[in-house]
Design a protein around this nucleic acid. Structure first.
Lengths: 229, 229
DNA sequence: ACCTGAACACCGTTCAAGT
DNA sequence: ACCTGAACACCGTTCAAGT
């Protein structure tokens, strides 16, 4: 009897919701959204599919919980600096990177299931914007703009990354491919896309993203509607 | 023999890729992303699943084609007005409404498969921004900001709509529900979210969206870095 | 060239039965 | 209370066979 040996056959830990979510995240990270399956999940947990349903209602709840855990972790890691602007930049970049390395987080956040984890981001962002001295009336608009910008650009960037990975290319190789494809489009129908193909080749997603955040932040500073009514 | 009668049993039209995409769009609109199935699709087309695979490689291609058709239609409908700004607003609002009434378009655009239909939007937006007289250097950044904003807010809005529908509520009822949930959050942990709960109740997604677009457009006008270096 | 439809490997979910 | 694992209804995809 080798019971107690570090075998993966017999579960030593008792099954718990947290443990299930933890392994779910591992699976999602390893093999994407298609990689999370009740069958391989229960295999890794050395149990049957039914056991998971004792702790979790359905797959949607599992995805939401995984996303929520990921977001909570990211929010924590983005230490609340002294200057609110630094906090905002850190939060934005933190989410950008989180979505980049865990693309499934982006999809869940964009889906109806993602509304709960979203509140975490809303809150942290909101506190920082408020600390910035933005008027009560403008806070909602500013936070909304930041949130949609972060999720929009983050998601788009992650989509690029996934496509690149699927074709076995790294970032620069992939941008190169897309750029040449754009250059090959019909000059009459796609003049603009052709003209920016070169710019695509040597741009930096992360830097562009931060530039956008700074643009929004700079917009907060300016005496709105005074200089340009 | 009732052959030729308007029965749905025997197909009269010959099967074609366009016809398949057309029916796919109907299914997606009727019952969401889960509603598109090779089984019900082949049923509606009065054929077998294998027949569809003659015209289409896989489900991903089907989704891309459906999304592309939808985007192309939207781009056409947003008539190119005389003033570029009017065109931009019309394009933005057109995509917002398209994603709102066809949420699956948003998901496909946000996924790796959506990169092809995306070029259509990029091009139209780009031509308008160029017509606005934006310098070559700034065009890429401006179009990128507009694109991510449109997709970000549009997707978020569609997610809200889907959640509302799933709970059998209309827009105002749903916002009411979310607002009261936000009000019930822990005052210590969620001060900001609680404080904006009221604002959520009586806000207008479409108006807020347009306001954001106008903000970006106004930003183009201002002599950048001159008044506020 | 185009279509048919049975078959395959898989999926989320359920549930009687065990401890 | 918590777990087991067979069973159910479904899914995307394939493919020999027909016309």
């Amino acid at each position: 009897m080798v019971k107690g040996a570090r075998g993966s056959q017999r579960r030593e830990e008792v099954l718990s919701r947290d443990r299930i979510v933890e392994v779910s995240i591992e699976l999602l990270d390893q093999s994407g959204e298609g990689g999370l399956t009740f069958r391989v999940l229960s295999e890794r947990l050395a149990t049957g599919p039914g056991a998971i349903y004792w702790h979790v209602c359905n797959k949607g709840e599992l995805l939401t919980a995984a996303c929520d855990a990921m977001v909570a972790r990211t929010m924590e890691e983005c230490t609340v600096g002294i200057a609110p602007k630094i906090t905002i930049r850190s939060l934005a970049l933190g989410m950008f990177d989180a979505i980049d390395s865990h693309p499934w987080v982006g999809s869940v956040l964009a889906s109806p299931e993602g509304q709960l984890p979203m509140v975490r981001i809303l809150e942290r962002l909101g506190q920082a914007v408020r600390a910035l001295g933005v008027s009560d009336d403008a806070q909602w608009a500013v936070v909304g703009a930041l949130l949609s910008y972060i999720l929009g650009v983050g998601g788009q960037n992650a989509a690029h990354g996934q496509l690149a990975r699927k074709r076995g290319l790294d970032r620069t190789e992939f941008l190169e491919t897309v750029a040449t494809m754009w250059s090959g489009l019909d000059p009459d129908e796609y003049p603009f896309t052709r003209s920016v193909a070169g710019r695509l080749r040597d741009h930096d997603d992360r830097a562009d993203f931060l530039a956008g955040i700074d643009l929004i932040l700079r917009g907060i500073d300016s005496p709105r509607g005074l200089a340009y009514p």
